[in-house]
């Protein structure tokens, strides 16, 4: 029974969640299927080892040994593809949650009911977090089953930790889009702000690895806190996780007064 905004929002999300989950599982399975072929390409590894350190940086931190399971999955999945996909989903959802409904006019309709505004914000944010975690779980599940059924020598737990890292990174930008929507009520502005900050902080982190004077500013980039610990190799780093989770919490906290204080658009 739909008796609150949380369940209604989750219901609206079910089809989208299903497709994204299938998509992520498919990617996990396909990538695992390719691994046996890659693992035999030792010549590729030699080639990589001759690359300058700055170029290696662009591939992500896990290129120590590309043909090892950790190197392969770090490079192919966790350095770019998985966080990017989760980001696209998260920013879309975050921008739509408040600002999208507001532009459609359904938010005013909802707020005429005895539901406090803070509750609408909290419920929608809750669905955002739950959806991202669900997607992470599906991806992790798909990857774990594929990897173990192909006897790939990699820790299932570490795969889960790396996935959690990706989910948290994506949540930072999703929460940013959500907050922008609470402040301004425009879906396109929210998406633009979150994507723009995403691209800039991504560049800050990668360029910061190569350009000397930028190095000191890398800590400002969420991507730095995601990439730096090399989670698939070393497991989650509490400090970096706290930074990412802290950002999510801060964006959420700002969202509530931003939305409860302002005028609601048509």
């Amino acid at each position: 029974m739909l008796n609150n905004v949380f369940l209604k929002t989750l219901r609206d999300q079910q089809r989208s969640l299903l497709y994204w989950a299938l998509y992520l599982i498919a990617i996990a399975v396909v990538m695992a299927l390719f691994y046996p072929t890659i693992s035999k390409m030792t010549a590729f590894n030699q080639y990589l080892s001759q690359l300058p350190a700055s170029v290696k940086e662009m591939f992500g931190a896990g290129v120590v040994d590309y043909t090892s399971p950790v190197g392969y999955f770090s490079t192919e999945l966790f350095s770019f593809m998985v966080p990017l996909l989760l980001l696209v989903f998260g920013i879309g959802f975050g921008a739509n949650a408040i600002a999208g409904d507001e532009e459609k006019g359904t938010l005013g309709f909802l707020l005429a009911n005895p539901v406090p505004r803070w509750r609408v914000v909290a419920d929608k944010f809750g669905v955002l977090v739950v959806s991202m975690i669900l997607l992470g779980l599906f991806f992790w599940g798909g990857l774990a089953i594929a990897a173990s059924s192909m006897h790939i020598d990699i820790s299932i737990l570490k795969l889960g930790e790396a996935t959690l890292g990706s989910v948290l990174l994506a949540l930072v930008f999703a929460a940013l889009a959500f907050m922008a929507g609470c402040i301004k009520g425009s879906k396109s502005t929210s998406m633009g702000v979150a994507s723009g900050v995403g691209v800039l902080t991504y560049l800050l982190n990668t360029l910061g690895g190569m350009v000397g004077w930028l190095k000191g500013y890398r800590f400002l980039s969420p991507f730095y806190h995601y990439m730096e610990p090399n989670t698939l190799q070393n497991g989650l780093s509490p400090v970096h996780i706290l930074v990412l989770a802290g950002l999510v919490v801060v964006f959420f906290i700002i969202s509530i007064p931003a939305f409860t204080r302002r005028d609601i658009g048509q």
Partner: peptide, 27 residues
């Protein structure tokens, strides 16, 4: 209060019955 918006925007992907039940539950 019961309110009807001037520029009515309803949840398009629901049936009328589901919509009324949802709003009823909120109340």
């Amino acid at each position: 209060v019961g309110y009807l918006n001037g520029e009515l925007a309803l949840y398009n992907d629901m049936t009328g019955e589901d919509l009324l039940k949802y709003l009823g539950n909120l109340r």
